[in-house]
């Protein structure tokens, strides 16, 4: 059981670091998906650990939310690309005036 959780943590960390270092918005998005999947793995593992299905159901909900999120996120990326001709997150640095 420990190894599953460990793997989940490693994947989550890799995803997090990916969000920080990658500049392509699509890849950043993929890294977020990776993090979500890592948590799903933890959910499923803990579900087996505790012997009930609530964890699996939580993972299912995460998948649903992730699907919705991907749809919206990708359409945002498309919109940005359409207006700015780039998918680099660093080009959208409008937070600094």
């Amino acid at each position: 059981m420990t190894e599953y959780i460990t793997l989940s943590m490693i994947l989550f960390t890799i995803g997090a670091v990916g969000v920080l270092v990658r500049r392509n918005a699509i890849i950043v998005f993929m890294c977020i998906e990776l993090m979500l999947n890592a948590t799903n793995l933890a959910f499923v593992s803990f579900s087996r650990q505790h012997g009930n299905l609530d964890g699996q159901l939580a993972a299912f909900f995460v998948m649903v939310v992730a699907a919705a999120e991907v749809v919206i996120g990708l359409s945002i990326i498309i919109s940005i690309y359409r207006t700015r001709r780039t998918t680099s997150v660093d080009d959208a640095s409008l937070l600094k005036s």
Binding site: V19, L20, V89, D90, A92, S93, L94, L95, K96
Partner: peptide, 14 residues
């Protein structure tokens, strides 16, 4: 630190 880059803020958050 106020760079305007989202990734920089994400790093802080992380």
């Amino acid at each position: 630190p106020q760079t305007g880059y989202v990734r920089s803020y994400a790093l802080t958050m992380f």
